[in-house]
């Protein structure tokens, strides 16, 4: 299954390298990785989607948190959270079939944002499955180019991922152990030679 993990990290040189290197080293399979700034100076936010069983998600969280520059890790997989990604899709569109495409966009709440005599650029902000469905519907017109951002995620409601971290006296990081010193079922690696 796919796991969505959010990491708040120090905005320091090399932090992306550390995270990427950790994934490669431990054999975690990254589906997507989105990095951006937060409203707090010095803190960046990564949203990482990985494929794997519970065991892998558990190790991923703990290994990520071992990185000194990682301030907080939160697994969004089983949380009530908003998950979105953005895609820009350029499709072949002539005056003959443009209306048909625009009808499709309406269904998916996607927007046309650029136009030429032979093409249309579409923007969609949605859950990954919705974007996949849109792409499927557009494919018969001929997709010329596409770019997707990877998933970003946020808790629903008033609480945030960042508030505890940005509180000076918070001891999230020292509590991490007792909260996340736990486990899961699954296969364990083989013995090396």
């Amino acid at each position: 299954m796919k796991h969505t993990v959010v990491a708040l990290v120090e905005d320091k040189p090399g932090v992306l390298n550390r995270v990427a290197s950790l994934f490669r080293r431990r054999g975690f399979n990254i589906d997507s990785l989105a990095v951006g700034t937060t409203h707090e100076a010095g803190v960046s936010r990564m949203t990482i989607v990985v494929e794997g069983n519970e065991n892998i998600a558990d190790q991923l969280e703990k290994q990520l948190f071992k990185l000194i520059d990682v301030i907080k890790v939160e697994n969004f997989t089983n949380q009530n959270a908003i998950m979105r990604e953005l895609a820009l899709i350029k499709v072949k569109a002539s005056t003959n079939n443009r209306r048909e495409i625009l009808d499709i966009l309406e269904v998916f709440r996607a927007q046309p944002i650029d136009l030429s005599t032979a093409s249309l650029v579409i923007q969609i902000v949605a859950h990954r499955d919705t974007i996949d469905a849109l792409i499927e519907n557009l494919s018969r017109f001929g997709i010329l180019e596409m770019v997707r951002t990877g998933r970003i995620a946020m808790r629903r409601g008033y609480t945030t991922t960042t508030d505890e971290v940005l509180d000076e006296n918070d001891d999230y990081s020292s509590n991490f152990h007792s909260q996340l010193g736990r486990l899961s079922n699954g296969n364990f690696p083989f013995v090396s030679d």
Binding site: N55, D58, Q59, K62, Q63, F65, K66, F176, H177, S178, L180, G181, R182, L183, S184, N185, F188, P189
Partner: peptide, 18 residues
């Protein structure tokens, strides 16, 4: 002391960190 060692290779019945 390292929680990442718990359940990495062998599942613990009771992991204790510290």
């Amino acid at each position: 002391i390292d929680p990442a060692e718990h359940d990495k290779n062998l599942k613990a019945t009771v992991p204790v960190v510290g």
